[in-house]
Amino acid sequence: MVSMRVNDEMTEVAVDADTPLLWVLRDLLGMTGTKFGCGIAQCGACTVHLDGVAVRSCRLPVGEVGDRAVRTIEGVGSTPVGARVQQAWLDLDVIQCGYCQSGQIMAAAALLAANPEPDDADIDAAMAGNICRCGTYVRIRDGIKRAAQHG
């Protein structure tokens, strides 16, 4: 039995502690907003926040979460930065297929929370780990800048 705080609520799951958080969220808690892309921390689709820091949930054994707060795409809108990023994404029509975008939004929100005025190099450093096969990079960059301005 593993207990943890997800989007401000305590949850308990009966699962092997080795299981990556990603699969606990998706398969056991039914929170399918967090996506599986590669399973090896190379694509960023599975990004969630652990105490506000962007983390690849596909490589994080659920047993290691401990008392750190987990936030997912389903709950990021309740943080001011998260809501701003979501709005910027809609304003600029960033999204295409959208499959990578949970991860992109989580990474962008974590970036802006830590660095409210990122420049291009900061954005690259924080976002290059998130692959978008549809190629929405131009707009992701613009979206982050827009969300920063509206902060």
């Binding site: 921390a41 190379q42 690849r56 994080l60 054994p61 450093a125 780990g129």
Partner: peptide, 14 residues
């Protein structure tokens, strides 16, 4: 690399 190792080099996930 940074997704796992973090910019601090302290490890981002485990």
């Amino acid at each position: 690399c940074a997704s796992c190792h973090a910019w601090s080099g302290r490890g981002a996930v485990t």
